[in-house]
Amino acid sequence: MQMWLNASLFTSTVQMMAPLLLAALGGALCARVGLFNVALEGLMLMGAFFGVAGDHFTGSPWLGVLWAVVVSAAFSLILAFLTLHWRANEIVVGIALNFLALALTTFLLRSVLGATGAFYDPAMRGLPIWTLAGLQRVPVLGWLFGYTPLVYLAFAAAVAMHLFLFRTVPGFRFRAVGINPEAAASVGIRPARAQYVAVVVSGVLCGLAGAQLSVGDLTMFSQGMTAGRGFIALVAMMLGRSNPLGVILASALFGLTDAIGIRLQGFMPTQFALMVPYVVTVIAMFFFRDKYLRPLASRG
């Protein structure tokens, strides 16, 4: 039992939570402008695939990250266009995009990378690990260091989003749009513009999240590798009340259960260990009684 509570548990928690945090922040920004972004999963998957594809074709993991960000931002534009411009139901579009992403990445995996199931290129380099001058060897606090830059970026993004939403004028307007779009429009704020920006930024963040999975944690892409993380991110976003700092805590909770789940694999059937994050997510929703998202979710 002791092996559970060592520093490596913290390390793997941080590793597990980083993609969740990035995606959940994207979802939170959308929620702040009044959109329920169910497509996080698909956006992440696009990011994961294009991260690896970019890395493979350019030889640079950084360009891979760039590909990931650009493509998932572009993909998120479909969501923005259909829901904002054409008023399609955001849940329907979100779900369809998730599956379109799955089909598209598998299609490209086979036709462009010529692989079935998974793609791995031994020549491919992953993102570097920033050890910050060996700080990860510091006792007790060592687990705070030794991750890819994207992990640090995730935390920085949370802080930046917090400042943006609560301290800047555009952030104030974003929140205004989410609270009452009609009122926002009446004072000359353009709700659709804020919503477009939020969706595209969520695309960027999900692209980063996917890249962290495929060229950060690992250096490979496998079919459907996001495995529901986008949905867990959605719950993390709700649990954190779309508040960037709250989202950090919620993502940490899910990162931790993920990390524990992996450790439990030695003690119980794999399937039950894999079930842990989903069960914890459902239980977490017991405590999420805030109903502000309900009208959003049951619209249409």
Binding site: L82, W86, R87, V92, F99, L102, A103
Partner: peptide
């Protein structure tokens, strides 16, 4: 096939919304 299928669904979703 899946790509075609989900594109169809996305296009149909526009009508539901409309």
């Amino acid at each position: 096939s899946s790509i075609i299928q989900y594109v169809v669904v996305l296009l149909v979703s526009v009508k539901v919304g409309h």
